[in-house]
Design a binder for these strands. Structure first.
Length: 344
DNA sequence: GTTGAGCGTT
């Protein structure tokens, strides 16, 4: 018959009573329902003062000596080793000296906190948007929020819909404020409104970007994001020397930084600007451009048009225009250059 | 009003 087992998240914390199965064993999934991400239990052995682990087999925890008794058990969570617990993407080969992506701090303001390098790396691991697959058609942003907030504070909830009908496409995105929330969330499946849903790091976050460029590509811009918004937002990471938004609206932009390091450090990240989650990636094209400048390595010719003076690139307005052609190890984005009509 | 693998109006 069912026993109730006292379990606390940390020792001396207030315990929660968790039901066993009829045979006395405890499903890890039952445990995880109260303590998301939990993978085991331990308890203090009164004889030695040491912690003792509870036996785990096939997703079931078994009571020591056959009875759970009146111990207060303590939840065991997976060690925070991202390489093991999280499906890593290729964008993590280097340490990012970023205290937290989510509060958007950068080098220069992190010297005082975070003593050990190892801790630092863990704490600094960035939160990305997470894709939630398999949502019920009726699930809303509010439903996502109320479900996922048990893992921690949320910075974004989004259900993707058909623009015309508003009908859900059955998936959405969430983003946590803290990386441990993200880890816990990724470690399990989710029952949302009667359906099992999967949470993953979206494939669209893959960043196999080639090296150094001061210009980054800002994807998923919404129409209400202006050049000033972008400049004001990104200035906190380093000096912004150009912002380019195509007209008419094309849902992307370019931001150029003075320091290529800054540009590179932002690649692969998601940022929330004017309530929209935008994605930063290298301004180099994913595929070689078609046509004249094409090369097998994706490099090509970049044609720049701009006014003289501050060197910040394309601007509008009157005045003399300088046309320059620069051979560079940068590819051409097709979006970059419908310029034939202007070269007169 | 239906559906059930996917990847966000480059």
């Amino acid at each position: 018959m069912t026993q109730y087992i006292q379990v606390a998240e940390i020792e001396h914390d207030e315990p929660v009573e968790i039901p066993s199965e009829d045979d006395g064993s405890l499903l890890v999934s039952t445990l995880a329902a109260q303590f998301p991400g939990a993978c085991g239990l331990k308890y203090r052995n009164p004889d030695t003062g040491n912690f003792r682990g509870v036996r785990l087999s096939e997703g079931l925890l078994y009571p020591p000596d056959g009875v759970w008794g009146s111990h207060v058990y303590v939840v065991v969570f997976p060690k925070l080793q991202p390489a093991v617990t999280v499906p890593e993407r290729s964008d993590e080969g280097e340490i990012h000296y970023i205290p937290s992506l989510c509060d958007n701090k950068r080098k220069g303001d992190n010297e005082l906190e975070n003593p050990s390098a190892k801790t630092k790396r863990l704490e600094q691991k960035k939160c990305t948007d997470l894709i939630v697959l398999g949502l019920p058609w009726k699930s809303t942003e509010d439903d996502l929020r109320s479900y996922f907030s048990k893992f921690g504070d949320l910075l974004l909830t989004q259900v993707k819909r058909e623009p015309k009908t508003g009908q859900s496409k059955g998936y959405g995105f969430v983003r946590f404020a803290n990386y441990d929330s993200q880890l816990k969330c990724l470690a399990q499946r989710h029952m949302i409104d009667g359906r099992w849903c999967d949470v993953n790091i979206p494939n669209s976050n893959e960043m196999n970007s080639p090296p150094s460029n001061r210009k980054v590509f800002i994807a998923r811009c919404s129409e209400n994001i202006t050049a000033d918004h972008l400049r004001d937002y990104f200035i906190k990471f380093g000096e912004v020397i150009d912002v380019f938004i195509p007209k008419p609206f094309r849902a992307f932009a370019f931001v150029t930084f003075l320091d290529p390091e800054v540009a590179q450090s932002l690649c692969g990240e998601d940022h929330i600007i004017q309530g929209t989650s935008v994605h930063v990636s290298s301004a180099a094209p994913k595929f070689p451009a078609k046509g004249a400048g094409e090369r097998r390595d994706g490099a090509g010719v970049e044609i720049g048009i701009g006014t003289m003076g501050d060197g910040t690139g394309i601007e509008t307005g009157t005045g003399s225009i300088e046309i320059g052609i620069m051979i560079a190890e940068v590819g051409i984005r097709d979006q970059d250059l419908p310029v034939e009509g202007i070269l007169t």
